[in-house]
């Protein structure tokens, strides 16, 4: 039989760890299916922005895309839960929970009516604060701090709950905005310092560890349903294995970024008093707990997180 050819689009460069992990997925899939399923990857946003490619996945113009969970908020509000500060106790706990089938089911099928489902998650790092001048030790130090956020309501709420002044802007503008003083701070994982050169203008990086927003691999639901059970299993297995391969690759990347930022860019890394931040975000956490759209997932994650 003719091999089934499918297409995956994402918007990271081919040097990014997630691209390598998606290549793992492709190779594992083609290996398991003995070439019956083929995957073509378009990196670098060649097929468009995250939202554009999600919409192409809805209509089956592409079959797969890897996007940030925050880009899925507009399609299913449950994904906004990942913008809740301190949802996970630690990165270890986060990885453990994200791999549990019960958690996956709670999120991945919520978009089936929109024409796509989740397949697996990839670690996209821990989000921390970084500033040009200000030193942040407790959440009092956040007062009036103009902090870049992604242009979304939940990101705005997140920074407000931490005590800062949110300034929505696109990621590409952050460097010059920091330089010219339009913003005082931004928040992201360590690679923003090096890959996007933010470390040239922001010299202080604080491990606030306020959020972990996963990348999600999504797939067109019709294509998935039309596959045989065996083919579906190949996809699930290939995805799961690539997720496992991705974690150490990501850790390595963060370690390298930190070293380059420290040694070549002169960025200082600080520990902070996390408890003061955790205290200040409680009202926001409660709103996620009460919200109909996120309550079930919230409770599930809390249950899974208790067994220490």
């Amino acid at each position: 039989a003719q091999p089934k050819e499918m297409v995956l689009g994402h918007n990271q460069p081919t040097t990014h760890p997630i691209h390598e992990s998606l290549v793992d997925f492709k190779e594992l899939l083609e290996e398991k299916s003995n070439g019956k399923l083929e995957l073509k990857i378009y990196a670098n946003g060649q097929l468009g922005s995250e939202r554009e490619v999600i919409e192409m996945t809805q209509t089956n113009a592409v079959q797969f895309t890897k996007v940030s969970a925050s880009a899925l908020e507009g399609f299913s509000e449950s994904y906004s839960l990942f913008s809740m500060p301190y949802l996970f106790k630690s990165q270890e706990k986060y990885r453990e929970i994200m791999k549990k089938p019960v958690i996956q089911e709670a999120f991945y099928n919520t978009t089936a009516d929109n024409g796509f489902i989740g397949i697996t998650y990839y670690d996209a790092g821990v989000r921390n604060m970084y500033t040009k001048d200000r030193i942040i030790k407790t959440n009092d130090d956040m007062h009036g701090l103009k902090t870049r956020v992604q242009p979304s309501k939940t990101s705005v709420q997140l920074i407000e709950s931490l005590g800062g002044t949110p300034t929505p802007m696109s990621f590409g503008e952050v460097y010059t905005a920091l330089q010219s003083g339009i913003i005082d701070a931004a928040e992201n994982n360590e690679s923003a310092l090096t890959d996007n050169k933010h470390g040239e203008v922001a010299k202080h990086y604080f491990y606030t560890e306020h959020a972990m927003v996963p990348d999600i691999l999504i797939m067109n639901v019709d294509t998935y349903n039309e596959l045989s059970e065996e083919e579906q299993t190949w996809i699930k297995e290939a995805a799961e294995e690539s997720t496992a391969l991705h974690e150490p690759r990501w850790d390595q990347k963060m370690k390298e970024s930190k070293e380059i930022a420290e040694e070549e860019m002169g960025v200082t890394f600080y520990e902070v008093d996390k408890s003061s931040f955790m205290e200040s975000v409680k009202p926001l956490q409660e709103s996620f707990q009460k919200n109909e759209a996120t309550r079930e997932q919230y409770n599930l994650i809390m249950e899974e997180g208790q067994d220490e």
Partner: peptide, 15 residues
């Protein structure tokens, strides 16, 4: 039709 239930991230207006 496809985007009736999809909302814009900041304003929550339907796409």
């Amino acid at each position: 039709n496809l985007t009736l239930t999809q909302v814009a991230p900041s304003t929550g207006i339907s796409m």
